[in-house]
Simulated scan of single mutants.
Amino acid sequence: MDTPRTAVDRLLVDGSGNRPRADARRNVERLVAAARTAVAEVGVEVSAHDIARRAGVGVGTFYRRVPSREALLEAVLEDVLAEVMELADRALADPDPWHGFTTFATAYVGLRTESCGIGEALGGACGEVFEQTLADLRGRVRALVARAQEAGVLRADVAWQDVPFLLAAVATTGRTVGLTAGERQWERHLRVVLDGLRTPDPVPLPGSPPS
Rank of each mutant, 00 (worst) to 15 (best):
V177E: 11
R19S: 11
L31D: 07
R5W: 14
D157C: 06
G56H: 06
R138Q: 13
D201V: 07
E70V: 05
A24C: 06
A52V: 08
D89Q: 14
D2W: 01
L92D: 14
A156C: 09
V158W: 15
V109G: 02
A156I: 09
R191A: 15
R140G: 00
T103C: 03
A34R: 09
A40Q: 02
D23W: 12
R142I: 01
E45C: 01
S47H: 04
R191V: 06
N18T: 08
P209E: 11
A91R: 08
G17W: 08
W186F: 03
P210H: 06
D201L: 11
V32S: 04
L179S: 14
A125W: 10
N27W: 08
A121F: 10
Y108C: 04
V145K: 10
D162Q: 08
L154C: 01
S16T: 15
G58S: 11
T6V: 01
G182W: 00
R140L: 08
A34V: 02
S208G: 07
A40P: 02
V57L: 11
L154N: 03
R30S: 10
D195L: 11
R25L: 12
F62N: 07
E128I: 07
L87W: 15
L166W: 13
N18P: 01
F101R: 03
R65P: 02
V129Y: 15
V80M: 02
E187W: 10
A169N: 15
S16N: 13
V42S: 09
Y63E: 06
G182D: 13
C126P: 03
R30C: 04
A35I: 02
S47N: 04
L72F: 06
A24T: 15
V8C: 04
T173R: 09
P67W: 15
E128P: 05
S68W: 14
R155Y: 05
T102G: 03
E114P: 03
G43Y: 15
A91H: 12
R54V: 01
A168T: 08
E187A: 08
V57N: 05
G139D: 13
G100A: 05
L154A: 01
A146S: 13
L72V: 00
L111H: 13
R65F: 07
L77I: 00
L122I: 15
A168F: 08
D2S: 13
N18A: 15
E187Y: 03
V177K: 10
G178S: 06
D79N: 02
V8K: 06
I51S: 03
R65Q: 13
A91Q: 07
S115V: 01
S47P: 00
G127R: 11
Q161F: 05
A135H: 09
V46F: 01
T102Q: 06
E86M: 14
Q185D: 12
P210D: 05
T3K: 13
V129H: 10
A93R: 12
T199E: 15
Q149F: 01
A171Y: 08
A35S: 04
V109R: 00
T37W: 09
A75G: 06
V170R: 04
S208Y: 06
G123E: 13
L154T: 04
N27F: 10
A151I: 06
V80P: 01
A22D: 10
L134T: 01
T106I: 10
D9E: 14
A121I: 07
F101H: 04
M1C: 04
L81I: 07
A135G: 04
Y108Q: 05
R36S: 10
N18D: 11
